[in-house]
Design a protein around this nucleic acid. Sequence first.
DNA 1: GTCTATATAGTGATAGAC
DNA 2: GTCTATCACTATATAGAC
Lengths: 195, 195
Amino acid sequence: MARTTGSHSDITGPRLRQAALELFAAHGFAAVSMRQIAARVGVQAGALYNYTPDKQTLLFNLMQDHMLELLDAFRDDPDAPPPQRLAHFVRFHIQYHFDRPDAVFISYMELRNLSPENFTAIETLRRAYENKLEAILSAGVARGDFTVQDPKIASFAVIAMLTGVNTWFKSGGRLTLGDVQARYWDMVRNCVGAG
Amino acid sequence: MARTTGSHSDITGPRLRQAALELFAAHGFAAVSMRQIAARVGVQAGALYNYTPDKQTLLFNLMQDHMLELLDAFRDDPDAPPPQRLAHFVRFHIQYHFDRPDAVFISYMELRNLSPENFTAIETLRRAYENKLEAILSAGVARGDFTVQDPKIASFAVIAMLTGVNTWFKSGGRLTLGDVQARYWDMVRNCVGAG
DNA sequence: GTCTATATAGTGATAGAC
DNA sequence: GTCTATCACTATATAGAC
């Protein structure tokens, strides 16, 4: 029973989010029109404005939710040995980002299309995530577990390296994601001098 | 003497390229109009079509020239010891990318906006660059200089890590670019197990 | 809540005068 | 080679009917 009009609030909201995520990731925020999104959702363009005040806010909410969920999902144990905490970060980051390629891609690529206030908000969240890794590295350096010179720079280097997995890894090839996690853990461990 | 009309072919061409580079990097290809570019160049929009058949070709040429210049600028010595070749790659990559932030940014971010044929052409050039690093790593593994398990994956990891410098480094801060090059060389050397 | 219709503005690209 | 003017479309967002 394909209704073409009427009330669908409980399904249109999530469908809008999903459609926007996919289309923004595939073509870029500026290249996607509200009409294209509406077509994928299965409504007319005007109906989308029951769910978002404008296109900019739609983008911001996608990015903000992604960052908040990322921060919430990463569980660090400050009392565990730093090498163990770092190993967990590496495996977590690769797995979490692999599971959400569209949200990850948008949150990297569309920063330019945020209004200044929205940009600042997202950058603050991103920095909070980077700081979690930096804290692990600093703790390890303080205890003599790691020999890396500059934990701040090392945190940038490690995150860039790990996020890069999304640009080339496809499941079904010669390596499983577990293989990739193991190889990156080897490289990261060496990188920070964790014997 | 500010001429507002007439023949400027020798200056408009370069100015178009530079204006497009800056605007695409700042706002994204899809978000920038030919009129905006023309305004920065100092001509009317119609005049741009004396220099490019269309907007898509303009983007493609910027990216292709960047990749060709990158490939041409990197000088590897296959007879040198792999650790020395790797050290050179690290320093070169950081310096070259730091000097061309706009072209680098575009060549990463605007792949989605290329036509399929143009995308393939740019990807081929990018792969050629990655292969240069992989060749160094493989040579080092063969000689026992490096212990990295998988040179292909390591080349992705190293390039992602090095390119990431452009997202955070600003000159005039606590570190010079030379400092950054030294710290990344330390990390890369450790990463691939080059004692 | 979704529809149709529309206001207002902007888009890439082209034609022809100079 | 650049200009002005324009074509044919598309954009975001809103108003009011249902």
